[in-house]
Structure formats: C-alpha cells, structure tokens
C-alpha cells in the first residue's frame, strides 16, 4: 500500500499564547514555536501502522516554505519513508482550494493507493481533504477514527455526534481525513530526528508540478483573510482576585450558593 500523508507546520498552541501584534491586524509572530499540526501526527501514525501490517511505504508531503522541511523530517523520524516539500513563492497566501490544487498536482505525479490529511489544522477549516478528493474524483471520508484494511477495500469508522460512529466500506484509492484519538502516535526522540537529518527531501515548485502560478497563487484565491482581531465580548467571567486563600473563600461561597457542594 502506497500511502501519502499531507502535513502542515503550524504554531504550537500548547507552547504559545496566540495574541495579536501591536498593530492589532495580525497575530504576534515573534518567537512563535512551531510544530506539526496535531491531527497530522495521528495520520502519519495510522499510515505507519497500516504499512506495518500490509506492506508498502509512507510518503509525507507539505505545502510550505523551507521551514516546513523540519516537520517533514520529524514525521520521517517517526518512520515515514519519504518526504516531499511543495514550495514556491507563487504558493504564498493561497486559499484552501489553492492548497488542494497544489497537492492534487503532486498526487498525480505519484501512484498512491491511500491519501490522508489531518481532519483540520490551526485555522479549523477542515477543507483540504474533501477538496482534494473531489478534484481527484475519488471517494472521501472525514473525521475517520478507525481503519481496517480488507484487500482493496477499507472498513472505516467516522466520528459523529455523542461518541457514536458511522461505519462505511470504501474502496481504494481514496482520501481520508484523520481524527485525533485514532491511535497513539509514537514518540520521536532526538536520536530519531538525527537519523534522518541528512536525508534529502526533494522540493517541487509550480513549474515542476505543471501548475500555472497565476492560476493557483494568491491572486486566484477567492477566499482571503484580511486581518485578525479580537471580537468585542460580552461581560465575560468575573475574575476572582486576591490571595489564594481569599480566592478559595470566595469560590467556596459561590459554589455553596450555586449548589456545587454536597
């Protein structure tokens, strides 16, 4: 089974407090710590586990700048066989559809049976997998949280409301977007990263992919973010202040009054 996993380098929300910059129109990008999108780690782990069972290879791919190489290397340290970086000045500020278009061109240069994306990334959009499948005209399922390989078909589970699961049979090739919790992604140590430090990662640009820069680039993006801002909020929470003891006393009184202590 040849599996392609699409991954993204994102600001790590557990390492950073995402805040607005001084001008209030963008997030503060100084000293941001980046890592691989949480969902993508589960996707790579799932691909590795499938290949362990049925054979094949795992390729990780990312649309990004040079720095995205570091997340490709991290996923290769987990065990992915190959990495491909899709990078070009023309790819800057593309919209979700642009990303899917670029990935489609790369998919068509390979011979993949199965393509994974994370269910969503830092922008919470959850769009690239479904668009990519539609462009490739192959079946799609989102929020996948179990996969069982049966020959050229998969039995998959999709997460729906209330912890319930929707089960489908889906044929290959297909695109699946992977939900967190599907597995327990393996730990990557410094040793693992060092092992793949010098593996070459090919970079493909618009021309290599046979893409017209004007057709995929920012100018073609029909959806554009114009700025970041903090919305005006209602009253918000009453923040309890004082020494820990004072705070606890106030909280205990409130809990008593609201029926929080039995």
């Amino acid at each position: 089974m040849e599996i392609l996993v699409c991954v993204k380098r994102v600001p790590d929300t557990s390492e950073n407090e995402i805040e607005l910059n001084g001008a209030g129109n963008d997030i503060d990008r100084d000293d941001l710590v980046y890592s691989v999108n949480e969902w993508d780690n589960y996707a790579v782990e799932e691909a590795l586990q499938i290949v362990d069972k049925v054979g094949g290879s795992v390729t990780v791919i990312s649309v990004g700048d040079d720095e995205s190489e570091e997340v490709l290397r991290r996923e290769m340290a987990m065990g992915a066989d190959k990495g491909i970086l899709l990078s070009d000045d023309a790819f800057e500020n593309v919209d979700g559809r642009g990303i899917a278009t670029i990935l489609k061109a790369a998919v068509e240069k390979g011979n993949y049976d199965l393509i994974f994306t994370g269910a969503q990334a830092d922008d919470g959009a959850a769009q690239v997998g479904g668009m990519l499948a539609a462009m490739l005209d192959v079946p799609f399922a989102s929020l996948v949280n179990t996969i069982e390989v049966n020959g050229d078909k998969l039995k998959i589970g999709r997460e729906i409301e209330g912890g319930n699961q929707e089960m489908y049979e889906i044929s290959l090739p297909c695109v699946l977007s992977i939900q967190t919790g599907i597995n327990e992604p393996r730990y990557v140590g410094i040793r693992g990263i060092r092992k793949v430090a010098s593996v070459e990662i090919p970079t493909l640009g618009a021309a290599d992919l046979g893409l017209d820069a004007a057709a995929v680039g920012a100018s073609a993006a029909r959806v554009q973010r114009t700025d970041y801002f903090l919305p005006e909020m209602g009253d918000g929470a009453e923040i309890l202040e004082g020494s820990t003891e004072e705070i606890i006393d106030k909280l205990v009184e409130l809990l008593k009054a609201k029926g929080g202590l039995k």
Partner: peptide, 22 residues
C-alpha cells in the same frame, strides 16, 4: 458539524464555487 464537514468542501469543488468553513 460532521455531515457538513464531510460534504461541503468537495461540493464547492464540484460546483466550482468558493468555500468558507466554520
């Protein structure tokens, strides 16, 4: 929600329409 997330991105491609999630 889960059905919209499954259905809508691909629909935008099939309709050649713009897509805005969430």
């Amino acid at each position: 929600e889960h059905l919209g997330m499954d259905l809508a991105p691909g629909l935008s491609v099939k309709l050649d329409a713009a897509f805005v999630p969430d």
